[in-house]
Design a protein around this nucleic acid. Structure first.
Length: 548
RNA sequence: GCCCUUGUAGUUUAACGGAUAAAACAACUCCCUUCUAAGGAGUGGCUCUAGGUUCGAUUCCUGGCAGGGGCACCA
């Protein structure tokens, strides 16, 4: 790999000069005119050894011999050493991309590891809202990044099929049998203060399964919700391997807490709590005063159940960041009860999807459901497609709609909130999912034409200069690795947008398929672009239609 | 009140302590007889504030201001 090669060369040059450095920082300069890779080692070394960084940089650069991959090494700015890669290197990369195809960009950094990723986590009886869409987009992409890095992934979905929200929904349904469960939940929530006793009674009966009427409503609601969720997962392109339910984690959690009363938990006001304040965290209730396990107890049990079933090397849990402080408490308790699991657990919080009017709340019924958003966007896409004679319009418009939505979620760093505005947040132009999909279909059309014209690909360039597209393609591997390590899909999004822009410039400037002698190489470039874009979009969970 | 988090063009966002802070949208100009104009080329415009650390700070630290989240029986 070129990155390692360069690091090695730098290290050698430094050691010839009698210096040593632990970590060699190597980056892609923001501006291509500064070369393909750049290092700041001379500035770091210059400081420690009180040497002029520019002079030192020059000395190091002189010791690095040029080879077939490195065209030239230059010193610039305050003491940067910039590496310019050779045309031969770029051409070799194109060749490699065409050879690796679907595997291009993957790496083995997580080889042989088993990793369980939990995400989406909607609750039966409640709406699947756009917040779940966000969790799904982030979680699916992280799953794919991890998978592309060689791990075996278990996609998990954890759902609250018992608990107070269920009782609220059942209460609402009892009062208003004609209501849908989402509305019944909102009704129950709004009347919770006045009907507390009754709703709590229902909650208890759900746990005990002691009331026939309640059981019936419960079973119907659970089934309806879960079936409905499956339709959405299918649209979104997620296939879960495992489902966990609170009805399962509840009893187990209860036991876990009970066993540790006096050791980790203590009783207080009739409830069983963990005193987080002692370690700078919030104090939280694990068993409420009615003796029922709260979400905290259930989450604790969930970790145990997951590990029993899968014996994972790592467990990634993706949730909204409103749960951040809460999860620190869970991790602290885990550390005390099963330290080895706490060690393997990684919480990845993502930002909240908020409306310009404020926070969305399913308690008040002020939500945009995932389905209505997808439908709305799809309708707009469909409209735009009107004059084109394309088959499978329904299917393609869905793929584009999902692409637009996922892109708008994955384009920024995962922790940040999105203020969601239908008109502003979802664009089909510029910086958008459809932009990437569109550039991919363009490449497809070109390749189709090349095939008809019987133009063979060639790795001999006749272009007069190295173009931006060539300089960007090989970087995909670096990007994937970084996105995977930091659990940040947005690196992929940003990169793909840059790549698509380079391809579109190329496309506008050059006629790719003609009978000139440059055509075969340009076709190879186009194919390399198509492969990279396709693999990259796959990592984002975005489909790539051949026509649009 | 305490804890966490965010503050970058008019707007939505990038920038792994480095170079002239980068894109998109919006505004204004151009470009379809061409492989898909959901495209391309161009113009103007930005680091909340006061200090500190550093050769170098949008990035790290401290204070202020402004948003958001969390803080005992919801999930």
């Amino acid at each position: 790999m070129i990155r390692e090669e360069l690091k090695k060369a730098i290290k050698e040059a430094i050691s010839v000069l009698g210096f040593e450095i632990e970590d060699i920082h190597l980056e892609h300069p923001a501006d291509l005119s500064y070369g393909d890779y750049s290092t700041n080692v001379a500035m770091v070394l210059g400081k420690v050894n009180s040497r002029n960084p520019k002079e030192l940089a020059q000395e190091i650069a002189d010791k690095i011999s040029e080879n077939k991959s490195i065209e030239k090494v230059e010193v610039a700015g305050a003491g940067f050493i910039n590496f310019y890669l050779s045309q031969e290197f770029f051409t070799e990369s194109i060749k490699e991309i065409l050879k690796e195809k679907d595997k291009w960009g993957s790496n083995g950094s997580l080889k042989k590891q088993k990793i369980i990723v939990e995400y989406t986590d909607p609750n039966p009886f409640k709406e699947f809202h756009i917040g779940h869409l966000m969790s799904n987009a982030v979680g699916e992409s992280i799953s794919r990044l991890v998978e592309f890095s060689g791990a075996r992934v278990v996609r998990a979905n954890y759902q609250g099929d018992v608990g107070l929200h269920v009782a609220k929904a059942i209460f609402g349904k009892q009062k208003n049998p004609e209501m849908a469960f989402g509305d019944a939940y909102a009704y129950g929530s709004q009347n919770y203060e006045d009907e507390k006793a009754q709703i709590k009674e229902i909650n208890k009966k759900v746990y005990e399964k002691s009331d026939k009427n309640i059981n019936e409503i419960y079973e119907e609601g659970r089934k309806t919700s879960l079936e409905y969720f499956e339709i959405i997962y299918k649209k979104l392109g997620t296939k879960f391997d495992e489902y966990f339910f609170e009805s399962e984690t509840g009893p187990k959690g209860y036991k876990l807490v009970e066993e540790n009363i006096g050791k980790i938990f203590e009783e207080s006001d009739g409830a069983v709590i963990f005193k987080g304040e002692d370690v700078g965290l919030h104090t939280r209730v694990f068993l409420n005063s009615e003796g029922l396990p709260t979400y905290e107890a259930k989450d604790l049990a969930l970790a145990k159940i997951k590990s029993k079933r899968f014996d994972y090397d790592k467990s990634i849990v993706i949730t909204g960041n409103e749960i951040k402080e809460y999860y620190k408490v869970i991790l602290e308790v885990m550390k005390q009860i099963f330290p080895e699991l706490a060690e393997k657990t990684k919480h990845v919080p993502h930002g909240m999807l908020r409306l310009p009017s404020g926070k969305m709340s399913s308690r008040t019924g002020d939500v945009i459901t995932g389905e209505s958003l997808i439908d709305e966007v799809q309708a707009r896409v469909f409209n735009k497609m009107n004059d084109l004679s394309i088959e499978n319009k329904a299917q393609i418009s869905e793929q584009i709609a999902i692409g637009a939505i996922k892109y708008s979620i994955l384009k920024q760093s995962a922790g940040k909130d999105i203020i969601f505005d239908m008109d502003k947040s979802l664009s089909f132009e510029g910086d958008s999912g459809p932009y990437l999909q569109y550039s991919h279909t363009r490449a497809s059309a070109v390749l189709e034409k090349a095939k008809k014209g019987k133009i063979k690909t060639s790795f001999k360039t006749n272009l007069t200069e190295t173009i931006e597209l060539e300089k960007l393609l090989y970087r995909f591997r670096d990007v994937v690795e970084r996105a995977n390590m930091e659990y940040e899909p947005h690196y992929v999004t940003t990169y793909l947008t840059e790549l698509a822009s380079a391809f579109n410039s190329f496309y506008a400037k050059e006629k790719i398929v003609d009978d000139s002698n440059t055509a075969p190489y340009k076709v190879a470039l186009t194919e390399a672009f198509k492969i990279t874009m396709k693999n990259g979009l796959w990592l984002l969970g975005i489909k790539t239609p051949e026509r649009m």
